[in-house]
Nucleic acid binder design. Structure first.
Lengths: 104, 104
DNA sequence: AATATAGGCAACCAAATGGTTGCATGTCAA
DNA sequence: TTGACATGCAACCATTTGGTTGCCTATATT
């Protein structure tokens, strides 16, 4: 879980996921296109995404195809975000109550 | 949005949010209890959470009360995670298809 | 007034991070 | 088989990060 959060913390990596979301199964060079970064930097980012299991790769000859794995993202939503949704209204009204109490 | 992702990337900070979720409106020292960290380290973490608008503070005399703000977490869920949920099944079946094609 | 308590500020530090360059390897095509 | 192309590996670098220590300030308490 920690690896996933860490992987998602970087905007370049999130944009790589976006690109794979738009078009799945891209090669490294394809993913490099238009990015202000060297190919090696992209390789590192993809490595981190792969380590976090957010991306799966498949070799096809000399090409390496990158596929998005949406499962860990879904898990973050289920196991983490939803927990805070439940308490959401309660937390906000408690805060509001305290803010008002301040002026007494 | 980037600030929120960055703030959530650290396990210590996520655990601080957990503690505020369990009991809202805690003081700095209260939040330090049981953590293997100095008070100053916790201060820094809380500062980052506050900058990301995940925590709101309220001074009460010499105490500083910390309140959880669940809105940014909710937004991550709405604006980011949900996007990948939509393509989820499609992405997985595409990946499955490619994995099978490999053996041809 | 004296002391304890809650928190703030700033300098410093080691390790992690995000990036680079240079070179090597594997694979396809003419 | 000889380029050309797709990717891999490794060393290096600056900046950020997560943490520390030491000291200072402000508010309670007695």
């Amino acid at each position: 879980m920690d690896e996933v959060f860490k992987a998602l913390a970087d905007a370049s990596r999130r944009s790589l996921l976006d690109r794979l979301h738009a078009k799945n199964g891209q090669t490294l060079n394809e993913l490099c296109d238009g990015l202000a970064m060297t190919r090696q930097a992209v390789t590192k980012h993809l490595g981190i995404l792969e380590a976090a299991n957010l991306v799966t790769t498949l070799r096809h000859g000399r090409e390496k195809l990158h596929y998005l794995n949406p499962v860990p993202i879904h898990q973050i939503g289920e196991r983490w975000i939803k927990k805070f949704e439940r308490g959401k209204l309660a937390a906000l009204s408690e805060l509001k109550r305290q803010l008002e109490k301040r002026d007494e």
